[in-house]
Design a protein around this nucleic acid. Structure first.
Lengths: 120, 120
DNA sequence: TTAGGTACTATACAAAATGTAAGTAATGAG
DNA sequence: CTCATTACTTACATTTTGTATAGTACCTAA
């Protein structure tokens, strides 16, 4: 993050894949390291920047900002700034963001199952 | 890919996340650029290395090998080598690999929906 | 006047993922 | 002997992602 080179092979490969495979498309959008975790916290309702930060152990402010910006660009979260001092900014899932709920649920189930299998 | 430094902050962050969030765990496992596409082709039945290569436009042999190795390590695909010349190697989803079907389905649906929304 | 809280931004760097180009081994067909 | 076929390796370059650390702007309260 956050510059992508629109001339790289990597870029055009992703584009081509996203074009034909909705699942690859989806995974480039929600595939970031913190993306899904952020969304799954937001499934519980809107949160402020600082609140999110507390929920995500070890995330740096830069990363949190970048991920939120990307989510915003992709219309997965909405950002509301309150003109107060000190500032207050709230993040909330959009409808398509909330629609991630079933995706996350499936991923969680599969993840749990896989983890058990591997740890045997 | 494919060396991960077990001393890096990034590594321990991923570990910590994977520990508490099955969805983050799942996404580190199936989050590779080609992973899901490979799996979704394999959902249709076993395929040889060369067949997979043809299905995946632009993938290099190196990338295909790496991804398949990772999938194998994670017990998502099984690898069968036939002692012939020229060699024949078949890849097939394991049960937990087939279990990705519903994950992929959800991702596809969400991806389609999201794509439509964005392109408006 | 100074310190403090909030949500950032900037810069530099480290690590991970992906890509390119060239090889290799085995063997049977010609 | 030479060539084609298949599934890889290897060495290296580039791109993408993540971390560390230090700022900034704003007002308010002490």
């Amino acid at each position: 993050m956050s510059e992508i080179k629109q001339t790289s092979t990597n870029f055009s490969n992703k584009l081509a894949l996203s074009d034909e495979c909705p699942e690859a498309y989806a995974s480039t959008i929600i595939g970031g390291q913190w993306t899904l975790v952020i969304c799954s916290w937001l499934l519980g309702g809107k949160l402020r920047f600082g609140e999110l930060k507390k929920k995500l152990p070890n995330i740096t402010e830069r990363m949190l900002t970048l991920q939120l910006r990307k989510l915003e660009e992709n219309k997965i979260v909405s950002r509301t700034v309150y003109a107060e001092v000190p500032p207050r900014v709230e993040y909330e899932l959009t409808p398509i963001g909330y629609a991630l709920k079933s995706v996350i649920k499936e991923l969680e189930e599969w993840g749990d199952r896989h983890k058990k299998l591997i740890s045997e």
